[in-house]
Design a binder for these strands. Structure first.
Length: 283
DNA sequence: TCGCAGGTGGTCG
DNA sequence: CGACCACCTGCG
């Protein structure tokens, strides 16, 4: 068990429910159990809005320094980012107030590719089921924690050797083909870290590529545009829903190097908030 | 029963 | 090169 004292701008519900990850489960006590980089842990914080203490169970100080500190993006000063973004407009200020504890996780690249490949034209409960099925059917056994067995996400060289039939039990639908093809390409070429490279992968378009860059390659300026972001940018800023170019320009001009972080505040606000925006905050 | 869900690839004009 | 449109699956 590791304890980290006095974290600011940190809330587990915000972090694990803002749509960036799919493998963390909320427990009855408000803690989260999950797996990343082959380690199973449970995270829990003390109550509080401005400052909390974090407990990571099933981890030691060494794990914290090597894995969790960076995974949770604790080196980054969100206070400063929030201050800067809040100044851009009143809508963003409101979204930040709502999702004050969001942090962009630094996730495993391969896991992020697979996760967002599966996410396309899909809903969150089913995305989670698909990923769990991949792990349980084809992933390496990692260990048992609090009575539950955990399996890692299968590596590219494992998935590349599977057939569509093999993957049928994972209920991936037409995405099964994308996963096999992408696994084969990455086994051969490794993982490139640019938008141009990622969009050469089968099943990876602009939205998924930007999610991969933002959530696993430290590109905080990448601005993934999905239906929710279209919705919120339309409601808040009056940009036409089909005009993704105008949205990208808005982000670049106003949110600058923190476009991706701004996107997360907006996404969480529209998704977890009242699901539509009050007249008063609309610009 | 049918539309829809955190898009993308293929196919037209 | 932009505008459709089909697509696995499960849920309401």
């Amino acid at each position: 068990m590791v304890k980290i004292k006095e974290l600011k701008d940190f809330n587990l519900d915000h972090i694990f429910n803002c749509g960036q990850c799919f493998r963390w489960v909320r427990e009855g006590d408000g803690s989260y159990t999950g797996i990343a980089f082959g380690k199973i842990v449970n995270m829990k914080t003390t109550p509080g809005r401005t400052m909390v203490d974090l407990e990571i169970d099933h981890a030691d100080q060494d794990d914290f320094e090597k894995i969790w500190k960076h995974y949770l993006d604790l080196e980054r000063d969100y206070g400063e980012i929030k201050k800067q973004l809040s100044k851009t407009d009143s809508v963003m200020a409101k979204a930040i107030e709502f999702g004050y504890g969001i942090r962009i996780l630094n996730q495993d690249k391969w896991e992020t590719i697979i996760s967002f490949l599966i996410s396309q034209n899909n809903n969150i409960p089913r995305i989670k089921k698909c990923i769990d099925a991949l792990c349980e059917n084809f992933g390496e056994y990692i260990g048992e924690y609090r009575g539950k067995k955990y399996y890692d996400l299968p590596k590219p060289q494992r998935l590349s050797r599977l057939s569509i039939d093999d993957l049928a039990k994972c209920r991936l639908g037409y995405r099964a083909k994308y996963i096999i093809e992408t696994a084969m390409q990455i086994e051969k070429e490794g993982i490139g870290e640019t938008f141009e490279y990622l969009t050469t992968l089968c099943g990876v378009g602009p939205k998924v590529a930007n999610c991969i860059l933002l959530f696993s390659m430290e590109k905080a300026d990448c601005f993934p545009i999905d239906v929710w972001v279209k919705r919120v940018m339309n409601q808040l800023y009056g940009i036409a829903e089909e005009d993704t170019n105008a949205m990208l320009e808005y982000s670049k001009k106003n949110f600058k190097e923190y476009g991706g972080i701004a996107q997360q505040y907006l996404f969480y606000y529209i998704r977890e908030g009242q699901n539509k925006v009050d007249e008063e905050v609309r610009l």
